[in-house]
Design a protein around this nucleic acid. Sequence first.
DNA 1: CCCATGTTTCAAGCAATTATGAAATGGCAG
DNA 2: CTGCCATTTCATAATTGCTTGAAACATGGG
Lengths: 120, 120
Amino acid sequence: MALPEGIEEALCRCGGIAGLMERLPGDEALERESALFRALADPLRLKILAMLAVQPLCVCVIKAVLGIADSKLSYHLSVLKKAGLITGEAQGNWIIYSLTDLGDTLWVRRIRAAKDREKE
Amino acid sequence: MALPEGIEEALCRCGGIAGLMERLPGDEALERESALFRALADPLRLKILAMLAVQPLCVCVIKAVLGIADSKLSYHLSVLKKAGLITGEAQGNWIIYSLTDLGDTLWVRRIRAAKDREKE
DNA sequence: CCCATGTTTCAAGCAATTATGAAATGGCAG
DNA sequence: CTGCCATTTCATAATTGCTTGAAACATGGG
């Protein structure tokens, strides 16, 4: 396989194809990371995270803000919960959701990233 | 609508439902953010980003490492390109891909996030 | 000009995610 | 116990995203 000038040289310097492969994250880590991004890959879910970043809320308030069907909201909440971004705690007749540590740090990161991007 | 104790009080403090809605990012921003996450929501694409974080590479090398069909790789490259995470520059017979600034900062962020998560 | 090589595009099928409405669960008040 | 309220679960339909192989497009060499 012929390669463009510059690339081949740089590739050799890092151990060729084999050397490159060694530097990559394992499949398991990639799967875990991408699963997290998948949970964040929906505007509705980001909006829910934004709300919970303000304060913990019960499902009915989230629903009132978003204006969507119960089951739809429940579905998205379960996606966020499975990803470990939020957690729900029963309180009487209600379930109060709030950000987990992971959700909180990721949220802070998102804000920072969005601000970084606005600079351009 | 009756609300659980604590929630209602906190909700009032931030301006009620209306006040909460004002604090949320606009639909446009949410769409833009989620589109970025969607591009990151695939292990193969994260692997490609990992490779390009090591050094710029032509398609054929990426293909050799991943061991997938041309068209499949091309598809994923186009997703990353549309999201503004990578850029391709023709050099003779080859196209050399590299991370954009956005891809690079996001990559750094990802590494940091992964390390944070390992602590637990 | 023609061929070989590297890469992309296209159409079709398949897989995964999301939307929807109805039914089920579980708690609490009367 | 009964009825109501908040929430989830389920089955199904609609949508979106991914994969695959064939064909098309460029580019550079003979």
